[in-house]
Simulated scan of single mutants.
Amino acid sequence: MTAITNQPVLPAVEPPSWWERQTDLIMRRPFNEWTFTHINRLMPTVTVARGAVSRPLPFRPLPLDLTYYFDGADRTMDDLHRRTHTTAFVVLHRGRIVHEAYPGWFASARTRMQLWSVSKSITSLLVGIALADGAIGNLKDRVIDYLPDFRGTAYDGPTLADLLDMCSGVGDTEVWDINSPIRRFERAVLNGGDVTEIIKAAQRTCEPGDRFNYSTFDNQMLGWVLEAATGRPLASYCSDRLWGPIGAERDAYYGLTRSHPRTAVGSGTFNATARDLARVGQLMVDDGVVGDRRIVPADWVRRSRGSDLPQVAVGALGDAEPAHYGYANQWWTLGESAFHAFTGIGVHGQFLFVDPGAEVVIVKCSAWPTEEDHARDRETITAMRRIADHFA
């Protein structure tokens, strides 16, 4: 294993104070239904501006009188929303809204939803665009080619390709224990603290490319690489190259770190309406094209549908991840049985499900009681596959 020198080590951390643990409270039910629709009331933000012209989504609602079989019983869509705390639910088929519901107390078609790690899939699209632009040279480029301040840390060595597939070799299983690295990162973002130093202190646990390890830090690094490569803030680049071109109805926004210099948390604070997120999914169904304009390279879209790397194949991600997932390009893949379906996922039950074979996009925003819930995840994927099969 490569030795890492001059790597900062954070001092031992005292248990968080009551003030710092407020963030835990606002992420729990029932408070999180409000939290996830009002992040701009809780932290600084930066606008991702829509374009001058919104591209309409045809609206042709159909009754979704389907059942899906889960845990020994046939269940309805109303069961899904109740059992998995759905706040927003939009289904597109062939670019048309065929079903839309907002069971959440504060949700509507105009509400910007906190998408958590679905944000990572947005970052991936921006990397693909920057690669096509020539701002990023090659996926074999090393992280430190763009971020030299990270020389001597665990990120001195991994390539951009390693980060895109969560195979950087940095860190271990991402858990939400009170003093885990991801919790410390979250508290630094919300309460003030140096997020850069927290990432610089992360330890290398294996050689880059050896194994999958889900890491918010990997994606945050990709966002910083984008800013360094393009010379532009993440929100501005996203607005000009993605959000405007897809014809979004409303401005989106990123949350910013509370401490200065403020930086967009590209790994987990993108907020947008469910309809606009569905437009992103439709972009992926249409191989990166909107109308007659190419937004994302076709090979980048296809790279997101699956990978030949054995360590990110469906069922090979390790005991910490559900067996029905693989990973590719900052998306969770679902394999051949779902017509090459793939999905962006955020904690507390956020999904951007894309099934190109069925020409179906499903957005599900939720307010789960905990960050992760494998049973609710399995139920959600079961229901989404049932919907896609119906339209296919």
Rank of each mutant, 00 (worst) to 15 (best):
D65E: 13
T47G: 01
I246T: 09
P297F: 07
A375M: 11
S108P: 02
G104Q: 07
R96W: 06
G318D: 04
V312Y: 02
V347Q: 11
W116L: 13
I26R: 14
A323P: 05
F217N: 06
A109Q: 13
H340P: 00
A313T: 08
E371P: 07
D133V: 05
A109F: 01
T86I: 00
A135K: 14
Y69G: 13
C206A: 13
V225S: 00
K120N: 05
G128Y: 06
S337A: 15
W116H: 11
R241D: 02
T23Q: 09
V13D: 10
K364V: 08
R142K: 15
E371R: 06
S267R: 09
W300F: 12
P158R: 08
Y69E: 15
A88H: 04
K364D: 03
W331F: 15
G244Y: 07
I362D: 11
V225L: 00
R112F: 07
N191I: 06
C365Q: 13
P233L: 07
D286W: 02
S307M: 05
G318S: 04
L163Q: 06
N138W: 02
W331G: 01
A228F: 00
F217A: 14
W332Y: 11
I295C: 10
F270P: 01
H260V: 14
R293V: 14
F185I: 03
H374T: 06
W368N: 00
